[in-house]
C-alpha cells in the first residue's frame, strides 16, 4: 500500500489521501489526494470557496478532517497535530499578526512560541527583518505598515523557526504587483533551500510560478500537474481570441458554428476553442458576418490557466471580475 512515511522513498513531504471535510450538509473538501515533494512549490488554484483554505487548515491541524488522511513530514495531521505545528510555518489568508505590536515585538513573540532561543533568536530575527526588507523599521507599529510589508513580516514570522514545510494561504491577496513579485522571489529562494511550499491562490499569473498545481473547484481537484501540462491537456483543440460586436449575441452564434468546441467571454473578447485554428480563422468571420456580427479581430493564442480552468469546469471562473 502507498502508506510509507512521507519522507522515505519518493521523497514526498506532504501526502494527502482522500481528504474530506464536511460542514453540516456542505462538503468543503471532497476526497482530495495529492503528494508534494521536498523543496517543491505546489499550488492549489481555484475560486473563492472551492475548498483551498479548508484543505490547508486541515494540513496545519487547525481543522479535523471528516475522512481520509494526511501526513506532513511523515506525521499524521489529525493525531500528531502539535508535532506537525512545530515543523511547519503557516501564513493565513487574513493577516494574523498583532497590529498593536511593533515589528520586532511580533517577531520576538512568534520566536518565543516556536522556542527559538539564545543566539539563534537574534540571528533569525535579523534574518527575517532583512528578508522582509524591514531592517531599520523594527520599532514601527505593525498597523502602520503597508500591505506588502505586512505580508513579508507575516512570512518572516512564519519561517523564524526554519520550518520544513510552509503553508501559504492566499499570501498575496490585496498586495500590489511589485510586492507580489518580490514575495515570490522569496518563496523560490526558500524552496531552493529545501523548504516544501504549499500555496493557494486565485491569481493565474501566480500559479504559473508553481512547480506543480492542482486546479480545485467545488471541493474537488479537477486537474493536477505542471502549469504547462495542465494547459496542454485541458484544451482539447486550438484556442482563438475573437473580438466581435455585439459580444453576447456573438457568443451564442459562435458556439453553434462548425468546428467550434467551446467558447467563453473573457472581458471584452471571446476565447473560442476550435478543432483546427487555421481553418477556423478563415471560416469563422464569414459565418459570423452572415449572422450580422461584426468581427474586429481573430487570432490564435496560447491558452492560459484560466482557459484551462474554464474548459475543465465547464464555465467556472477563478475570479469574479473578468480577466483581461
Amino acid at each position: 500500500m502507498a502508506t510509507e512515511p512521507a519522507t522515505s522513498g519518493n521523497g514526498a513531504s506532504i501526502v494527502v489521501e482522500e481528504l474530506v471535510k464536511r460542514f453540516g450538509d456542505f462538503i468543503a473538501v471532497n476526497a482530495v489526494s495529492f503528494q508534494i515533494r521536498r523543496g517543491e512549490i505546489f499550488g492549489l488554484l481555484g475560486p473563492n470557496g472551492s475548498g483551498k483554505s479548508t484543505t490547508i487548515r486541515m494540513l496545519c491541524g487547525l481543522l479535523t478532517p471528516t475522512a481520509g488522511r494526511a501526513r506532513v513530514v511523515g506525521l499524521d495531521v489529525a493525531t500528531q497535530a502539535e508535532a506537525v505545528r512545530q515543523r511547519i510555518g503557516y501564513m493565513s489568508q487574513k493577516f494574523s499578526l498583532y497590529n498593536d505590536l511593533r515589528v520586532v515585538e511580533n517577531l520576538n513573540f512568534f520566536a518565543g512560541l516556536y522556542g527559538v532561543k539564545g543566539s539563534l533568536l537574534s540571528e533569525r530575527t535579523e534574518w527575517a527583518l532583512r528578508m522582509a526588507g524591514l531592517a531599520g523599521s523594527e520599532q514601527t507599529l505593525t498597523r502602520e505598515l503597508a500591505g506588502g510589508w505586512k505580508q513579508r513580516l507575516a512570512l518572516g514570522c512564519a519561517v523564524l523557526h526554519r520550518p520544513q514545510v510552509l503553508f501559504l494561504d492566499e499570501p498575496t491577496a490585496g498586495v500590489d504587483p511589485l510586492s507580489r513579485r518580490q514575495f515570490w522571489q522569496l518563496i523560490h529562494e526558500m524552496a531552493a533551500d529545501g523548504v516544501t511550499i504549499l500555496v493557494t491562490t486565485h491569481y493565474m499569473d501566480e500559479a504559473e510560478y508553481c512547480n506543480r498545481l492542482a486546479l480545485v473547484d467545488a471541493g474537488r481537484i479537477v486537474a493536477a500537474g505542471t502549469p504547462t501540462a495542465i494547459k496542454r491537456t485541458a484544451i482539447a483543440g486550438d484556442l482563438l481570441l475573437v473580438e466581435c460586436a455585439p459580444l453576447g449575441h456573438g457568443l451564442d452564434v459562435i458556439k453553434s458554428a462548425p468546428g467550434v468546441l467551446d467558447a467563453a467571454v473573457f472581458g471584452a473578447v471571446l476565447h473560442v476553442v476550435v478543432s483546427a485554428a487555421e481553418r477556423a480563422r478563415t471560416e469563422l468571420p464569414a459565418y459570423l458576418n452572415a449572422q450580422g456580427i461584426r468581427v474586429d479581430r481573430i487570432d490564435a493564442i496560447a491558452p492560459s490557466l484560466e482557459d484551462a480552468f474554464v474548459a475543465l469546469t465547464g464555465g467556472s471562473r477563478l475570479i469574479d471580475e473578468p480577466a483581461q
Binding site: E82, R85, I88, Y90, K94, F95, S96, L97, Y114, C157
Partner: peptide, 14 residues
Amino acid sequence: ERGTMEGLIATPVT
C-alpha cells in the same frame, strides 16, 4: 475578533 487566533493556534503553543 482581531483575526489573530488563526496564526496563534497554528504555532506549537498549547
